[in-house]
Computed example of a mutant assay.
Amino acid sequence: MDVYRNILRPVLFRLDPEDAHRRALATLSWMAKQPWAGQLDRWFSHTDPALEMSLWGLSFANPIGVAAGFDKNGEAIAAWEHLGFGFAEVGTVTRHAQPGNPRPRLFRLPADQAAINRMGFNNEGADSLAGRLSGQKTAIPVGINLGKSKITPLEQASDDYLYSFERLYSLGDYFVVNVSSPNTPGLRQLQQADRLGEILGRLQAANQGQKPLLVKIAPDLEWGAIDEVIDLCGEYRLAGIIATNTTIGRTGLKTAAQEAGGLSGAPLRNRSTEVVGRIWRRSGGQLPVIGVGGIASGEAAWEKIVHGASLVQIYTGWIYEGPWLVRGILKELSKRLAEAGLTQLEQAVGLAWRT
C-alpha cells in the first residue's frame, strides 16, 4: 500500500479525477484479458473460508464488493475477482444512454479522504450493458444497479426501471433500485413510500421472486422515512437494503467544499453505519444490509458488519488506499473473527446489538 500512496497515487492525483478514472478502468479491462491475469490474485486476494458468506442463494468468497458507480458500463467486470473482491456491482445503468452532467463533475477532497461527484448517471444505457455482459463469465456474483433516465418524467419512472430490469434480467445475480442519487433532478422523491411502492410492485411482478431485489437509500433521510422504506421491503419481499448512497451534507469537512453533488468517503462513515444499525434493529436482523460509506480499513469494514451489514462495498476508499486495500481489509476481518472467538463471518453480523 505504501507503493501506491507514495508513488502511484501522487501520479494519478495530478490528473483530472475523471480522466484518472477512465484510465484506471481501461487498464483494468486490459489486465483482465491477459493470460497472466490470474496471477494478480496472489498480490491482491486473501482467502479464508471463515469469510465466506451465503446470501440469497448466492455464494460470496468474501464480503467486500465494488460499489456501483466505479464500473458503470461493466468495462472491467472480469478484473474485479483478481483484485480480491467477493462481488461487484455495475451501473448505475438507465434505460436510455445519457452523457450525464457537464464536466467537471468529480472532485477530490484529499484532506477529508473524500470525493464529491455530480456525474448524473452517465452511462451507455441498458441495451449496451446487456451486450457487454452477455457471454461474460465471472467467478464472483455481479449486481446491477438500476436508475431513472433524466429524460423520463417522474410519473413514468416505473416504466424506465422495468425496461432495464427486464432487459438485463438474465445477466445479473442481484438487482438494486437506485432512488437515492442526488444528481438526477427529482430522483430522491422516488424514495417516498407511494412512489417507491409503485416501482417495487412492478419489478416484483416481473421478477416472480427469482432474482434478489434491493433498494439503495440516501443517508440524508429522516429516521421515519427510513422506517417506511424498511416496511416497504417487507411488503414487497425485497431481499435487502444498500445503506447508503452519497450525502448532500457537508458537516465537519476540513475542505471548503463549494461544489454541488454527492459526498462520499470518510465523512460518510459514521452516518452510514448508523443507518445500517437502524435497519438491522428495526427488522430484527431479518433484512440483509449491504453497508457502504467511508470504508477504507479493516476496522471500518468490521464496524459496518457488527452493526448489521452482511456485505460491504468500497469505492472512494479504494481510490485513496489503492488496490491492496481489499487484501488488507480481509486480513483484518480474519483477525477480528479469531479475536472474537467466531468461526464464520455471519456470526459477527449485528454483533454490536447482541452483546
Rank of each mutant, 00 (worst) to 15 (best):
L337D: 09
V93C: 08
D71W: 01
W56Y: 08
S283K: 03
S283A: 11
L133W: 02
I151S: 15
D227L: 14
A126R: 02
G249F: 10
I151G: 06
A37G: 11
A300N: 12
G234D: 10
G322H: 07
I319H: 03
F13H: 12
G91N: 04
S54E: 12
M119F: 14
G285T: 13
Q192V: 01
D2I: 13
I151L: 14
S149I: 00
I116T: 09
R108P: 02
Y236F: 14
E198F: 07
G293T: 06
T184N: 01
A296W: 13
A296R: 14
G291Q: 08
T47D: 12
L232R: 09
H96Y: 14
G350E: 01
M1F: 10
R95V: 11
V66A: 05
N245P: 06
L106T: 10
V3P: 04
L8D: 09
T355I: 11
M119V: 14
D71V: 07
G234I: 02
R14Y: 02
N6S: 15
P323N: 01
A26V: 11
S297T: 15
D194H: 04
R14W: 11
P153G: 05
L25H: 02
P141W: 11
I230P: 00
G143K: 12
S128G: 02
S272C: 13
I295M: 07
W324N: 04
V292C: 11
D173P: 10
L238W: 01
G69H: 10
G74M: 04
K148C: 07
V349C: 08
D159E: 15
P102L: 11
A338Q: 15
R269I: 08
G308L: 07
Q286P: 06
A225Y: 04
Q39G: 06
E222P: 00
G252I: 13
H21A: 00
M31C: 14
E299D: 13
Q210M: 09
N145C: 00
W280T: 05
T251S: 13
E228Q: 15
L8R: 04
A50I: 00
A260R: 11
P219E: 08
